[in-house]
Nucleic acid binder design. Structure first.
Lengths: 149, 149
DNA sequence: GTGTTTGCAAAGCATTTGCACAAGT
DNA sequence: ACTTGTGCAAATGCTTTGCAAACAC
């Protein structure tokens, strides 16, 4: 699940710097939320944490995710039907959201950044964050669809 | 609230074409959802409809909005804390979302369209819809902030 | 007249909160 | 030791659903 694992030490330090206690559950949630490229849901994160901390509760996962959000380390992506996913990539980038398999792929594109700069400057709007989603069918799913027909 | 009011006749025709009955409540919800530039919430739409149809229920508003969504006439924009807003603009455009006053301003920009074309082609992704949000402080709210300090 | 829609109230979910106990510093 | 965090269960708030009466066609 995590390609780019943050080490425990780094996370413990970051939590303490912000005045939070570094509990095992918290460290685990942070590691997954900050390292995953899968844009996991709360349920998915909780399931993952349970592998090493079987007693963890959803409440703790929610609380920790809120800390990360308030510390501007992750972004919350809300979708219809109460689907919420989390993204540690806060740079301007594009989310390709597959409406078949639910996968979200990141595309880093410098033009996205330029577009945001241009538009906000023109509208005298002070940007703090952004979200660019494209909804559609990913390469993998359209292959499956084609094979079926 | 509505600058670009769709006429009743057009909406009635559209509903019937899709096999739906044109009830007064439905017509009213459609008019507001399709014409408003304010990206209204469900509550706001319901309140607006109540002005002419005081007995309308939230359930009816929800149902009608679902029809419009499934007919690809509006888009649902989900935000944290169960905030849902609706947007009749389905063309690629940019939403400037003010985190102070909650206003959402549309910016039509051909570069947004081009960016989407480029990225989806490259990733062999079939686009169906999109959403580009920039979160920050609008011109009006930053003036207020400056005046305070 | 027939099938759909309405409006109410109840049910369903995701998320938050209160609180006693446990754990980190 | 003191304070904060955990985990449970209950509460909250948005959205959906079931159903009888009302309505569109």
């Amino acid at each position: 699940m995590q390609d780019q694992l943050k080490s425990d030490a780094v996370i413990i330090q970051a939590l303490r710097n912000k005045g939070y206690k570094a509990t095992p559950q918290r460290i685990s949630v942070c590691k997954i939320a900050l390292s995953s490229k899968e844009h996991p849901s709360v349920q998915k994160i909780c399931k993952e944490v349970k592998k090493t901390h079987p007693t963890v509760s959803l409440a703790t996962v929610y609380t920790t995710l809120r800390l990360l959000k308030e510390s501007s380390l992750i972004q919350e992506l809300n979708f219809p039907q109460g689907q919420t996913r989390f993204d540690p990539n806060l740079e301007p980038h594009i989310n390709l959201v597959c409406i078949h398999c639910g996968r979200i792929m990141d595309v880093n594109d410098s033009e996205a950044k330029e577009l945001i700069n241009k538009v906000t400057k023109k509208a005298k709007f002070t940007p703090k964050a952004q979200r660019i989603d494209i909804y559609g069918v990913c390469q993998h799913c359209s292959k499956i669809d084609n094979a079926k027909s």
